[in-house]
Amino acid sequence: MATLKEFEEALRENGMLMALAILERLRERDRATRVVKPGRRIVGKKMTPELARQILELHGSTEMTQQEIAFKLGVNQGRVNEVIKRGKWLSGDQTAPEAVARDKGKARIQGAEPKRPRKAAAKGGQKSGARSGAAKDKAGKPQRQPATAQLAFGDL
């Protein structure tokens, strides 16, 4: 099947200027009525153990995809994946890693928790481009020797 661009090129090759003019007029009409809508963003519900159990129930009893489950329950698809794959959110423990991360994120959004200061790129007056050998050794990792070939063509 020919694309619109190929159709336009064929019209141009055959000198069908009137058809090209009609095509252009249709394009302009389409552009005038076209509306660009922002992406649909779903504001997710707070994940709770009850909601996690409901996700697992839907996943086990229906043939719904993770995306369909997320739309139905009004949660992020990533959260559905976490519940199904890793069993997150099933315990009501407030010290669980996912609950702690959620609470930190909420506090940061509300401005209650001060933002972490950024690490200075040039500590101690060093420029980022001119690192000394001591800075490389600071990590405590021994420097690797270049790998040598195990076989050469002449060895065979």
Rank of each mutant, 00 (worst) to 15 (best):
K119S: 02
G92S: 15
E98Y: 10
M47Y: 03
A99M: 13
A99N: 13
T48A: 07
Q94M: 15
A52C: 10
K85R: 15
G140E: 01
D137V: 05
P142G: 00
T48V: 09
H59R: 15
T95P: 01
T62R: 10
H59T: 09
G105E: 12
G129M: 00
P117C: 03
P142R: 06
A107T: 11
P38H: 12
F71R: 13
L73W: 00
P49N: 04
L56D: 06
Q54F: 01
K88T: 12
K88W: 14
R144T: 03
A130E: 12
A99E: 14
G111F: 01
P38F: 04
I42G: 06
G78P: 10
N76S: 15
R53V: 06
G111S: 10
I109P: 02
K127F: 00
S91I: 09
G44W: 03
I69K: 01
V36N: 06
P117N: 08
P38V: 13
K136R: 06
P49I: 03
T48I: 08
T48M: 02
R102C: 09
V80W: 00
G133Y: 02
A135H: 00
D103K: 15
L90F: 11
R118L: 02
R34Q: 11
I55V: 15
P117D: 05
Q110G: 02
I42V: 15
S132A: 11
R118G: 08
K37H: 08
A149C: 04
G44V: 02
K72A: 15
P49K: 05
H59C: 13
L151Y: 14
L58T: 07
R86T: 13
G105V: 04
G74H: 09
K72G: 05
E57K: 14
E68T: 12
I42A: 05
S132P: 01
P38L: 07
F71C: 10
K136I: 14
L73T: 14
S128W: 14
P49G: 00
I55A: 00
S132Y: 04
G140D: 01
E82L: 04
R131Q: 04
D103Q: 15
G78M: 12
R41S: 07
P38D: 05
A99S: 15
A107K: 13
G60V: 07
K46I: 05
A99C: 14
T65L: 08
K127S: 10
I109W: 06
L58K: 06
R79T: 11
L151Q: 05
I109M: 14
K88V: 00
I109E: 15
P114Y: 03
A130L: 07
K123L: 05
E113S: 15
D103L: 14
R116A: 08
Q94I: 06
E113G: 03
R34V: 02
E50I: 13
R102F: 10
L151T: 02
G111E: 05
S128D: 10
K119V: 05
P142N: 01
K138N: 12
L56E: 12
R116M: 04
A52N: 01
R118H: 06
S132W: 04
K127G: 04
P49W: 09
G125T: 13
K104G: 12
L51N: 09
A70F: 00
K123C: 03
A120W: 06
H59K: 02
T62F: 10
G133P: 01
R79F: 11
V80K: 01
I42Y: 11
Q143V: 03
Q54S: 12
